[in-house]
Nucleic acid binder design. Structure first.
Lengths: 245, 245
DNA sequence: CCAGGATCAGCAGCCAGCCCGACACGCTCG
DNA sequence: CGAGCGTGTCGGGCTGGCTGCTGATCCTGG
């Protein structure tokens, strides 16, 4: 965290009003732009690539932009004087963040630390542009609402995870969340497409590195998961879910 | 939870399009309706009063309405087969909930249990009306976005609370959250305007009744809080915050 | 391409925080 | 006035955090 540097490489800024030619993912209607396309089309928007471990914004930075994660994962965390860092959210692709800049007219500051958990591609636009876009085209507002709703769902699932008392249940619950958000199915189970250190897991579920090591070892010995170069594969989520105490 | 009954008393349904004459809180412009006014004006909206302890919706109920809490507190919780009930959020006045019904076009079901934590007044409207209103008037979308944003903030603060390792820190953090959301300043500190049983606190922060009793006792003995008929008064939030371990 | 440093994983022993079960008392509301 | 809920307390037992160490792996810069 010391010596963290901002790693922006702003390589494109679409001309305002330009409708991107990219076909939307899998919607059939011709006039159904995705949130991604909408944001890219805003005045002052840009596409940014950030290397793993670089900071996107620091706590205390002015909050004036909205971000949409296009590829990779972003970690939002709270930093304490003690130096401890607590992970508040692990954002997956298509997540919206930095939205509190929309909250009020008055200027506000970030209070999270946002860092690229993997190499990240994202689109970003000034909050003012977003607000204007909503006023001009109501469907933009609807898209944003859907983005925020799914973010709330994601966050509340995390709360569920954290209220489990024993660490074993917490870990299992967290792994299932990760499977939902970052899982890619393979021929022998679901692989979590993140390089997770035990320390990172501990910071996310409020435990310590040593405990995570021990519990993950237990799960592996019981044949429930496999770990290969920091990538975790869950053989059978259903079986894993039975591990709740 | 057994024998919980729905306690609706739907006593009014504003005619659609009727602009309420109530002045908005403290905005100066004449044409700045609040979210409350907007929702009351929607087709199919209604104002409802619910008694303490009654259920607003059960998990599994169809999700077709959006709610805005006008007075009181609502508890969202997840129910497990074991009978255990985990509190996911304690909503304060002006909170929006039930919004996942806006999420997709397809019908979905509630997966939380929403019960009135105090006597509650709220306004509610069908999700379809809300969606239509957004399309017609973009400022509605903006208001909803602001509502959701503040809800996300609230939820993430709760995650912070829950990642504290020791129960003492968790409890302190939770009390501070409650002060923020439900505190009313008095002449000797901030009183949390909720009648909280130790059991309810335990369900919210993932602990047990006995532990809460002990820790609250400690805080009281140290002269940090006072408890009078289930209402907690925090003498000095700053001093309390120093109790983080 | 290699060397060195930094980060990560795994193990063991110690100890405390907290869960569990049980019980007694007081308040409140029917 | 009695029943039920909420509060306060005690001990026993175990989970899981803390310290200290070692070997493995990754990354980076010369």
């Amino acid at each position: 965290m010391v010596g963290a540097t901002r790693g922006f490489s702003r390589y494109s800024s679409t001309p305002s009003g330009g409708v991107p030619a990219v076909a939307s993912a899998n919607t059939t209607g011709p006039a159904a732009p995705t949130l991604l396309e909408v944001i890219r089309g805003l005045a002052g928007s840009s596409v940014e690539t950030i290397e793993r471990g670089k900071t996107i914004f620091f706590p205390g930075d002015p909050a004036e932009r909205v971000y949409l994660l296009r590829r990779g994962a972003v970690r939002l965390s709270r930093v304490y004087e003690s130096g401890e860092e607590i992970t508040v959210a692990l954002l997956r692709e298509n997540s919206l963040f930095g939205v509190l800049s929309l909250l009020t007219g008055q200027r506000s500051d970030r209070f999270y630390h946002a860092i690229a958990f993997t190499r990240v591609e994202m689109v970003t636009a000034p909050a003012t542009s977003v607000r204007r876009a909503i006023e001009q085209d109501a469907s933009v507002g609807l898209l944003l609402l859907q983005g925020l709703s799914s973010r709330i769902l994601q966050t509340e699932t995390m709360i569920e995870t954290l209220t489990h008392r024993d660490m074993s249940s917490r870990l299992v619950s967290f792994l299932l969340v990760l499977c939902r958000d970052f899982g890619v199915p393979g021929n022998e189970g679901i692989t979590i497409d993140l390089r997770l250190s035990h320390q990172a897991i501990a910071e996310a579920i409020g435990s310590t590195r040593v405990t995570i090591t021990r519990l993950l070892g237990d799960l592996r010995n019981d044949g429930l998961v496999q770990i290969d170069r920091k990538k975790i594969t869950v053989f059978d989520p259903i079986a894993l879910a039975k591990r709740f105490s």
